[in-house]
């Protein structure tokens, strides 16, 4: 199984290489990628530097161009594909059908992976992309259970990549408009979710805190309570008489314990989420997953998740909590 790791910066890239990533995915610094945060991502010269380093160390470089190309600015997305091809990236990760078709026609030799943002959950959906845009691999949304992933691997000839660790999107990716509904900016169009420029932290005299997004109250934290980022689906809201995390509590996805099942199912690659994360975070997560995958491959019968690995991942998780998410039906 290939370990696919995130890099939002040169230092995160170095960290991922040093800790044993098999492949690293990056984005260009504009709205063509789904982690379009200020100060993140790669301009052309940094991307060239990354590719040189990747080649030298035998690591693959993938470029995520995984937002939806807007009608009036389609050329901007085409140019990103041209740029990835000129760079010599090993693959582009894309969701937009029109853009995938452009890449297939213009650069047939450059591998195309279907981004999770395309939200393909069935062999039939994958077959559509395969027939019309020649995808070789697909990243599967975090809404499927382990049994569903096993079925998908058995039914499709497209390589399957699943999320191993990181922020938990509880909505089918690429089909969530919650962010644009409240802020006007969305993952699909601007490559952002609950963007930082709309966040307001309001510290109160008693030590409590309000977190707001575009003026709307997303959460209230009592004095001393750990205040999380106001991502819309992780806020505390009132439904009828209950005030609670109506969608999901702050938690991270962690499928380390499912690694043997994922390998047995035929999963081709494990993706680590987090291009927005620090180099230190990337280094820690990648090092744990590298050890786990190596241990599994070395001796599949004796695979054991070491407590030290889980402790390290828990420390790096949102709210210090992790979950199997939809991989286990009990979560649903």
């Amino acid at each position: 199984m290939e370990l696919v790791c995130p890099a939002g910066s040169v230092n995160a890239f170095k960290a991922a290489v040093e800790q044993g990533a098999d492949a690293i995915y990056i984005g260009f610094n504009d709205s063509t990628n789904a982690r379009n945060f200020s100060g993140l991502n790669f301009n052309d010269s940094r991307a060239r530097w990354a590719l040189d380093m990747a080649r030298e160390k035998g690591v693959k470089l993938y470029v995520a161009i995984n937002t939806y190309a807007q009608a009036a600015k389609f050329q901007q997305w085409q140019q990103a594909v041209d740029q990835a091809a000129a760079l010599g990236a090993h693959a582009v990760i894309m969701a937009d059908i029109g853009l995938l078709a452009y890449a297939a026609q213009r650069y047939p030799q450059m591998q195309r992976h279907l981004s999770v943002q395309a939200s393909a959950t069935s062999a039939q959906a994958l077959a559509f992309y395969q027939q019309h845009t020649g995808i070789r691999r697909a990243v599967i949304p975090r809404v499927l259970s382990l049994a569903q992933i096993q079925a998908l691997c058995a039914q499709s000839s497209v390589g399957i990549e699943v999320f191993g660790f990181g922020s938990l999107c509880i909505m089918a990716e690429g089909r969530c408009h919650m962010s644009s509904y409240v802020t006007g900016e969305s993952p699909n169009m601007q490559g952002v979710c609950s963007p930082a420029k709309f966040v307001h932290w309001q510290e109160n005299a008693d030590g409590s805190m309000h977190s707001r997004l575009n003026g709307e109250l997303i959460d209230y934290f009592a004095p001393g309570e750990n205040a999380g980022y106001p991502t819309l689906c992780k806020g505390r809201f009132a439904v009828e008489d209950d005030t609670y995390h109506a969608f999901e509590a702050p938690t991270s996805l962690n499928t380390l314990e499912l690694l043997p099942e994922l390998q047995a199912a035929g999963v081709q690659a494990i993706k680590i989420e987090g291009r927005q994360r620090s180099p230190a975070y990337v280094a820690s997560v990648v090092s744990v997953w590298r050890k786990a995958i190596d241990s599994l491959q070395h001796n599949p019968q004796q695979f054991n998740v070491l407590p030290a690995w889980q402790n390290k991942l828990s420390e790096l998780s949102e709210g210090a909590q992790t979950t199997f998410g939809a991989y286990h039906r009990s979560w649903q």
Binding site: V143, C176, Q332
Partner: peptide, 15 residues
């Protein structure tokens, strides 16, 4: 009311 998102989780059952 516009459909904005779909999840594996049922929010009505959760509530």
């Amino acid at each position: 009311h516009m459909p904005l998102a779909y999840s594996a989780r049922c929010f009505t059952a959760r509530q």
